[in-house]
Computed example of a mutant assay.
Amino acid sequence: MLFKTSFTALVVASLAVFSTYTPQAEAHSWMDCVDWKFNNAKTQDWSDKGGKCQGYARRFPLGKKFASLDSASPNRHYRQPKKNPNSYPCSDRKHGEERGSDETRASPVEKAYGGKYGRMTTTTVGDTLCVRWPAKNHATKDEENHPVFINLSKVRDGKDISQKELTANNIAKLNYKNCNSKFPNQDQRACGGCFKVPVRASGVYLLQWRWLLNANVNEWYTSCADVRIGPKSKNEADWEVKDLYRGLVPTGLIETWKQLFTTTKWIATIMVTKFVSRIEEFGRTKIWNKQCEDTVAWEKSVGITFMSKRAGGRNGDRGHQRSVGDFSDLKGRRLLATEIQEGRRAADYRETCIAQQVTQELG
C-alpha cells in the first residue's frame, strides 16, 4: 500500500513538472534589420520598443513578430552548403543545407524592396549602420561566441560577387552575444552591433551578414541586403582635380584618406597636404610653366616683345590693355579674400612668364 501511494505521488509530481515545462527550440539566426535606429543611442535597446528599423535584407517580409521567421515558409535562416561554404553567398532557394528565403539580387534591384517587403537601406560614407539579429538560444554562457562578419562588396551597381571576394572585403566583426541582457526569453532576445560605412563611390552595394555557428561542421549562416551609399555629406562641397592643382586641400579628401589607410586624422592631414603639394608642383612645373614657355615662343615668333606689351598697356595700342586692380570681377562684385589670393598667385605665375620672356630677349 505504501509503495502504491509513493508511485502515485511520483507520477503526479512528474506530470506537474512536464505540464509547466515550455520547450526552448534551438534554431539558427539571420539578419533581422540592416539599419536599426535607436530611440536612445546611449542605451542601445535592440528590442522593438527600443528603436525602429529603417532598412532590411532582400525580400524581408513586414508585419512578422520578431524572431519568428525560423518557422515561417520560407524561413529566413539560410545555411551555406556544408561541403563548400564558399559557394552561394546569398540564398537562391535551391542550394544549401537549409535553403532559407530568396535573397538573390533583383533586376532592377528595387524590386526586392517596398510593398510587402521592407525598405532598402540608404546611407552615406562615414555613417554608422547598426544591424540586428535574434539570439535563438545561442547567446547563452555555455555557447561558443563566434563573431558576426559584415562583408561589403566593392562592386558598384553590379552583380553579386563570390563568397571569397566578400570575405576579402570584411569591414566589421561584431559580437554575436551583444544582446538585451534583461530579456528572459533566450530564443527571442534581440542582439546587434554597429559599424562605420567605409569609403565607396556613390551606388548600390551588396552587404552580407555572415555567422559561424559550428566550426566543426562548417555551419555558416548568411543574410544579404542591398545598400545604397551616397556621398559623405549633403552639405560638403564637391571638389575637382583642378582644385589640387591650385594647392587647395579638401577636407573630404582628408577623411577619405583616414578611412582608406586606417590612420589618425592628424597623419591623414599631413599625408594629404604633401600629396596635394606634389600635385600642385607638378601642375606648376609641367603644365603652367610649359604653357608660359609656349606662349613666350609664340609671341616672339609673331614679333610681340615685352617692350611692345608695356607700350600697349600705356596707350591701348595693339590691343594690349593694362589690368586694373580694384579687386572686383566683371560684374562689379567684390572678390573674396581667397579669390584675391588665387588672383595674386596667378599674377605671380604671369610675372614668371614675363621674366622668362625678358631673359630670352636680353639673352
Rank of each mutant, 00 (worst) to 15 (best):
T256G: 08
Q44H: 07
L213A: 03
M1T: 11
K49N: 12
V272D: 00
A13T: 09
S6M: 08
N170L: 08
V296Q: 06
A297M: 07
S328D: 12
G247I: 06
N185T: 15
W220N: 00
A57Q: 05
S71D: 15
S6W: 13
L166V: 08
T43M: 05
Q259F: 11
T263R: 09
G158V: 04
N169G: 06
N137S: 13
R314E: 15
V11P: 02
Q357A: 12
Y349S: 10
P108I: 08
G96A: 04
Y205W: 10
C130Q: 01
H28Q: 04
H95F: 13
C90H: 04
T20H: 10
Q163E: 12
I267M: 13
Q186P: 02
P23W: 06
E351V: 09
S19V: 14
S181P: 08
N40A: 10
N86V: 03
Q54A: 14
F306I: 10
L260G: 11
T124M: 07
V358W: 08
Y245R: 06
E143W: 04
G316K: 03
L330D: 09
K173S: 13
P134A: 09
I171R: 01
V324E: 15
V296E: 05
N175T: 07
D160A: 13
E299V: 03
E97D: 14
R119D: 14
T128F: 10
S181Y: 09
A297C: 13
S223L: 02
Q356S: 11
E351P: 01
G51E: 02
D102Q: 12
T222Q: 01
I304C: 06
E299H: 05
F7Q: 10
F275P: 02
Y56K: 02
G319E: 09
G332Q: 02
E143S: 02
L129P: 04
D348Q: 13
W257Y: 15
Y56T: 06
I229F: 01
A106S: 14
C90N: 03
R278G: 15
D317T: 14
F327M: 10
L152V: 05
K164T: 08
F60T: 04
F282P: 00
A337F: 15
T124C: 09
V249R: 03
T124N: 06
H95W: 10
R132N: 08
V34L: 03
A215R: 00
Y113F: 09
A237H: 13
P23K: 07
A9E: 09
I254W: 01
R318W: 13
W298L: 15
Q341W: 10
E255G: 00
K196R: 14
Q341P: 07
R350I: 07
F282L: 07
A41V: 11
V155D: 03
P81S: 05
V324L: 12
G115Q: 07
D32I: 02
E26P: 01
E144V: 01
Q357K: 12
A72E: 13
G51F: 05
S328T: 15
P147E: 05
K286T: 14
N218T: 01
G363Q: 07
W239E: 01
H95A: 12
H138D: 03
A13S: 15
D48N: 11
V197S: 00
H28I: 01
W36Q: 02
I254V: 15
E103D: 09
A190K: 02
T251R: 10
G51H: 05
Y56W: 09
D92F: 04
K64P: 03
E255A: 11
D142Q: 09
V204F: 08
G316F: 12
S101Y: 00
N218R: 02
Q188C: 07
T305I: 09
